[in-house]
Amino acid sequence: MIDSVVVIVVHLVFALAITPVLIGVMRTVRARLEGRVGGGIVQPWRDVLKLFAKEPLRAPGSSPVLTWAPLLLMASSLVLCALIPLVSTLPLAGVPGELFVVVSVLLLGTVALAMLGLEAGTAFGGMGSSRHMVFTALVEPTVLLSIYALSVPAGTSALAAIVRSRRDDLSTLLNPVSILAIAALIVVVIAETGRLPVDNPATHLELTMVHEAMILESGGRDLGWLEFGSWLRLTALLGLTVNLAVPWAVAGDASWTALLVGVAATTVKLVAAAALLAAVEVFLAKLRLFRVPELLAGSFVLAFLSVSASYLVF
């Protein structure tokens, strides 16, 4: 019980501390490749602390959704970070770490964002929300299916147990099932966190916005929760993907040395993955909206093939 509490606290503190730095690394890599200096890797920290210090400005006549949706997104992201084996694969006592629970929590944040987009009644908000839900409808089955394929050799759908079994039995890392599932997972993580080529996090062009369009009407502290919540989702999903793809040095228990090694290893893996993601983004253009479902359907096919193959391989 104590061990589970320690692991959850470590997960939360780790995620809260590293998330803005991760965004800072991505922005800096992008700025350097564009020939700029950029704001530095702690700039997202400054941005978010400033937002928390500002009064939220809400339009007269707006409903409570404008207030609670950002909090719901932030809360769901924190739960996500606690449940996903970022640092330690210790099965949490009394807390379900099941694949289906994690995907439901992910969906909770998505729905909060979509409700927020609809709340203001503006054209952009509704457009952003409808696009977001289309992507979600294609992304969620792929997340379920690809991790399900990885769960077959582990014999359980608890994420911590999947990562642990992959760490202990390295032969499960390099086989068609694993590679197809990880490839599918990478595509859906990019779509779910609103990165290129699905959504452009830096765009201000009204017709190409998805994530930006939904949060246009939030300001001050509300926007701070929204930004931090979305960034935490990126950390959680990226952390899950790298720990499934390269599960080395993830802690197996709650001892301090193991946790310290786990924190260091996950930090290195996350920063490397984020830098790689940002570098690849420089070479990509945003996909036309009607091509995005093709990309996501492709990733679903990869996940489906992965599940089919798992019955042949194992």
Partner: peptide
């Protein structure tokens, strides 16, 4: 200007 912490945004609310 981004190196001094300034960034252009899409909405006056931001």
């Amino acid at each position: 200007a981004e190196r001094f912490g300034a960034r252009l945004v899409a909405s006056p609310r931001h």
